[in-house]
Computed example of a mutant assay.
Amino acid sequence: MKRVQVVPTWSFRDSEGNQLNPQLFSLLGAIHETGKLTAATSQTGISYRHGWNLLKTWAAFFGLPLVEMQKGKGAKLTALGEKLLWAEQRVVARLEPQLDSLASELNMEIHRALEGVSPLIRLHASYGYAVALLPGFSEKIQLDLQYKSAEEALASLNRGVCDVAGFHVPVNGRAGGMSEELYETYNRHLKPRVHKIIKFITRRQGLMIKPDNPKQIEGLQSLVKKDVKFINRQKDSGTRALLDELLSREGINSQQIKGFDDEEFTHSAVAAFVAAGMADVGMGVEAAARQFGLDFIPLSSEYYLLVCHNRTLKQEAMQRLLDIIRSEPFHQAVGKLPGYSPDDCGDIVTVDMVFAERN
């Protein structure tokens, strides 16, 4: 079945009502990547003349050039060109979970209108690169994927609003970074006699930094340097909880970190923020760092887990979801994500086994 995607587009309009089509963004991105207008136009599938005219039209619109042409050296984005490119990428990264959730709702309605409707599974999950792969493998089920914080997802499961919830915990339990507060939060929602845990993936979390590490960031202790600007995740995210615990273990006062109160809402949004030069370092998964050409300092590994009621395991839709995450094609797709591993993906364990290492 054809699946609908929802992507944001820009519309530029000046005070006189003049408006431009935002086709330029793909060209700016290609110029940033290749350093040559000829290669950029070829990569974006437009003629050199059309690409040149786009640059001239937009330069006239803004009153400043977006690309600097250097004889014998190719093309380079100006400061304004870079600002536009990174602004577009930050917006896409920030809206990604909401747009994916909307696309899931649209695809559900389309699917219901077709004959031979397949079984439905409602998955509320913390946003991540691996879980975002699932819609592309869900031809045999109706997957209603809605992105929530880990605690919101678990609360939805207990209210019967979803069938499966996704959340993540540090590897090796408490020793790996699970604070007493995080443990109590999960313990409040997870009931050993009611729920079963499905192992999903393992992922690396760490510091995302600029290439060549100009601020000489070596670890968490470097975050308190006066010339280092940090970008954080929102307070209800698992990444923020992990960071808070790691800082506590190293005795670092978060109030000494410049930018600690500045927040973004996805791993990719944090990476885009750093790539745009608006911060020197952020916390997130390795896949986000590599996506935006950043270097990565690993700090901790996490299990991303799925949880459902015992009775849900017997349902056809759940069995099909398990078939998907246990399949070799899905494992190969996860394996292509930097810092991700599908080890034990699809194994079913008890709630007690997940937290056993804390005791």
Rank of each mutant, 00 (worst) to 15 (best):
E109P: 00
S101H: 05
N53M: 13
L84H: 10
L321T: 08
M278N: 15
S300E: 13
I325T: 01
R358D: 14
A269F: 14
L54A: 07
S42H: 13
V307W: 01
A79E: 12
N107D: 05
G136L: 00
V169W: 10
G339E: 04
L64K: 09
T41R: 00
P97S: 13
I325E: 00
E16F: 01
L95R: 04
S118M: 04
K210W: 12
W10Y: 04
R203D: 07
P298K: 13
K215N: 05
V334S: 05
Q89M: 15
V354Q: 08
A287T: 08
S138I: 04
L54D: 05
I217F: 10
P65N: 11
T312A: 10
M318C: 15
N107P: 05
K148D: 11
A60H: 05
I252S: 09
R203E: 14
L243F: 10
A333F: 05
T34V: 00
H50M: 15
S42C: 03
L246Y: 08
N53I: 05
M283I: 13
K191F: 09
G116N: 10
L223Q: 03
N310S: 12
R3A: 08
K148P: 01
E33M: 13
L134S: 06
Y304W: 03
R320P: 06
V349H: 14
A269Y: 15
L66M: 01
V281C: 10
A79S: 11
A276D: 07
T38A: 11
T266R: 11
Q205N: 14
M278F: 09
Q315D: 15
W58T: 12
T239N: 08
D343P: 00
K336Y: 03
E88M: 03
E302V: 15
K226Q: 15
M178H: 12
C308T: 14
D344Q: 15
L54G: 12
W58C: 10
L80E: 04
A333V: 02
I231Q: 15
Y127E: 10
V334T: 05
K196I: 02
A165N: 01
T38K: 11
H195C: 11
L294V: 14
K314W: 00
R159S: 09
R49D: 12
R233F: 09
G339D: 02
L99F: 11
S254K: 14
G335E: 08
K226N: 12
E184C: 07
R326H: 11
D163I: 10
F167N: 03
Y303S: 09
T41A: 09
L120W: 00
E82N: 11
S237A: 15
Y147H: 05
Y304T: 06
L220R: 02
L154C: 06
K76G: 00
A150S: 06
N359H: 12
L120M: 02
M108A: 03
S300T: 14
N158T: 08
N310I: 12
I31A: 07
T9M: 01
T185H: 07
R204E: 08
S15G: 07
S237K: 08
K2T: 11
L85E: 01
V224M: 01
V169A: 12
G293R: 12
Y340P: 02
G251E: 13
